[in-house]
């Protein structure tokens, strides 16, 4: 089980943190945001890192999940889990219909199309106020309960979101190391060669688009219940960009890269608070500097450097 050794350590750390630091703000409050962001970054990495298809509109699916839960539970009084499933089904259908025409595009065109999709969905959240509550959003979601236990405290949410995050990381690691994952990498490497190996590239891209959207939508539903509030602001174009940044910052194509990127970018605002008005400026600067000097991303660059040092030491001894 060497394959999952890294994952086991990571899972252990995540699950032990609240036991060791039960009342730490960074663990039980910031931790929740970090877990959601990790899940989203990992799901986006499946599409961007593995299959090489950029998306500047991932927040749209996160938002659709969140709004589905909010609207279906509050306006239609549905059971929260049923609402979540219906939201997921909606996102599966929508992303499937859109996937083929969108993923026929490449490079800047794909960037534009996904960006447009994200913006249209965001505008819908703002404008369709009878349904979505407009810019003010919707509050008062019912409490989610699991096996009869109401999830009503930060610490309970910690374990729920942590489990979902770990599940998504595990899925992502499993996919990387499988026939489906190799087909995605093949599409990334050379679409023509992938086709010549019998891979239906359009289908492969479409499937991972839907899968990644589904992961984001479920995260959205959980987010809505945890916050007890949804508003368009959380699902804007800027959030999509932040998600892309997380993935690229850690290192495209690496699951733990996405984890690290999401972690840094979620913790950064907390750290940058000391800069006050400089926050936006510093954020932009960090983004540029990392992309210019470590284009492979932090995690991948560090991993390669460590591997190089180890191999040098091996030759020396």
């Amino acid at each position: 089980m060497k394959r999952l050794a890294g994952f086991a350590i990571f899972a252990a750390v995540c699950l032990l943190l609240p036991v060791i630091f039960p009342d730490n703000y960074y663990v039980t409050v910031v931790g929740l945001t970090i877990f959601l962001n990790i899940t989203l970054a990992v799901s986006l990495n499946l599409l961007m890192g593995y299959a090489g298809q950029i998306s500047l509109g991932h927040a749209a699916f996160f938002g659709l999940g969140a709004y589905s839960s909010a609207i279906l539970t509050i306006k239609y009084g549905l059971n929260p889990w049923l609402a979540m499933i219906l939201g997921a089904v909606l996102v599966i259908c929508l992303s499937y219909v859109l996937s083929r025409p969108i993923l026929r595009l490449k490079g800047h065109y794909l960037a534009m199309a996904t960006l447009g999709l994200g913006i249209i969905v965001h505008i819908f959240f703002v404008q369709a106020d009878e349904l979505t509550g407009g810019p003010d959003g919707i509050t008062g979601l019912p409490t989610l309960s699991l096996f009869g236990v109401a999830i009503d405290s930060d610490i309970k949410w910690y374990f729920v979101l942590c489990s979902y995050m770990l599940l998504s990381v595990l899925f992502s690691l499993n996919i990387a190391d499988s026939r489906a994952g190799r087909a995605l990498s093949a599409v990334h490497g050379s679409e023509i060669a992938a086709q010549m190996m019998g891979i239906d590239t359009a289908k492969v891209k479409s499937h991972i688009f839907v899968f990644s959207a589904l992961m984001a939508a479920l995260a959205g539903s959980l987010f809505a219940h945890q916050q007890d509030f949804v508003s368009p602001e959380s699902f804007s174009f800027f959030f999509s960009i932040e998600l892309v940044t997380m993935v690229v910052l850690g290192g495209l194509g690496s699951t733990f890269g996405a984890v690290l990127g999401a972690f840094i970018l979620s913790i950064l605002p907390e750290v940058l608070i000391v800069f006050e008005d400089f926050e936006v400026l510093v954020f932009g600067l960090i983004l540029m500097v990392i992309m210019i000097f470590l284009p492979e991303g932090l995690f991948v660059s560090l991993k390669n450097r460590a591997a190089m040092m180890l191999s040098k030491r091996g030759i020396g001894s």
Binding site: M48, I54, H108, V280, F283, G284, I286, M291
Partner: peptide, 20 residues
């Protein structure tokens, strides 16, 4: 830089300029 990298760099620049 790849297409994706240049997209991120210019997005970073835009955030930086907005911050300034």
């Amino acid at each position: 830089a790849t297409v994706v990298s240049t997209i991120i760099i210019t997005i970073g620049a835009s955030i930086f300029l907005r911050g300034a």
